[in-house]
Nucleic acid binder design. Sequence first.
DNA 1: GTCTATACAGTGATAGAC
DNA 2: GTCTATCACTGTATAGAC
Lengths: 188, 188
Amino acid sequence: MPAPLLSKHEVLDRLMESFRSHGYDGASLATLSERTGLGKSSLYHYFPGGKEQMALEVLAHLSEGLAPTFRAVAEEPDPRRKLDRMLKDINALYAGGKQACLLERLAASVDRERFGASLRAMFDGWIGAMTGIGRAAGLSASVARRRAESAVVRIEGALIVAAGTGDVGVFRRALDEIRTTLLRPEAR
Amino acid sequence: MPAPLLSKHEVLDRLMESFRSHGYDGASLATLSERTGLGKSSLYHYFPGGKEQMALEVLAHLSEGLAPTFRAVAEEPDPRRKLDRMLKDINALYAGGKQACLLERLAASVDRERFGASLRAMFDGWIGAMTGIGRAAGLSASVARRRAESAVVRIEGALIVAAGTGDVGVFRRALDEIRTTLLRPEAR
DNA sequence: GTCTATACAGTGATAGAC
DNA sequence: GTCTATCACTGTATAGAC
């Protein structure tokens, strides 16, 4: 979208990075301007709705960025490899537990109500994708769904605890736990 | 501490409530002043260090508020009842999943580095208390500790996902999962 | 499209009267 | 101890030149 420096893709990447590291309330237009290299005016040219619109578009951008992972997971026939692919991409997305989650940052913001619908859609899509992995492994719908929800819960929680304790090992152990439990056969 | 209206205990309660609902960055001195009924000057009279000091003292206040629970859990002889007591108090603290966690809010703030040591101590204390429950049930130190960490991770994550999806059922299910798995005998 | 300049409310924080 | 008034600054957001 800008003729000159950055593509819209790159701009959204940098905005996302800013929101993730500073939080939505903590990211000022000054930081956003600095990180993107765009003046405040240019920022408003692209996002007339201000910070709120930026966050909304960043959410959509993240959703698009996640699509290839979800697609690859859906197309991979082997359940075990579905899960490995998902966990690998998640580990990369959060830089091994060092990077915060955009969804959490927005869910904790003062404008959270404005993001409600988008956040819900993102969480549901994510849990849905994890549910699909369990289903492919032969789990019942209810168990697959319950475990998927638990997996997403652990990932979000691990990021918090890792940040709070300064120990990214928490995140690694959470992923390991998911790896060894998500597809475990149901007891009967 | 104030001769007139509110005790320091009550002031800290209200500050905590403000930080939890608005986030650290989202809670302005104006809101803090309104919620406590204290003018900004009075606020600075009690907390010369400003917002940062308020958050630090609120953390200490929370720690004191949690002490009775931890003590009761430690003194209760039956492991099962230890756990039930802990989960009951946690459920109350977070209002069944409707209230955010102060630790998360501070860990996500722009001033997070200033809270680092206190946050780490709080998380460690919490995980330690949960570990004690597992130990009392005969679990090995390593398993008890791993499960305790996982429990705290789930609680934090469930609060995020519950807020993001608008479904407090997530929180209830997370507590249920902890109730049924934390003390499970180790496989051999 | 991007720049400089700026409006104006709100921010954290302080001073001094009472 | 609390008030009113105010500080310097940053916040989001716009206007208008180029």
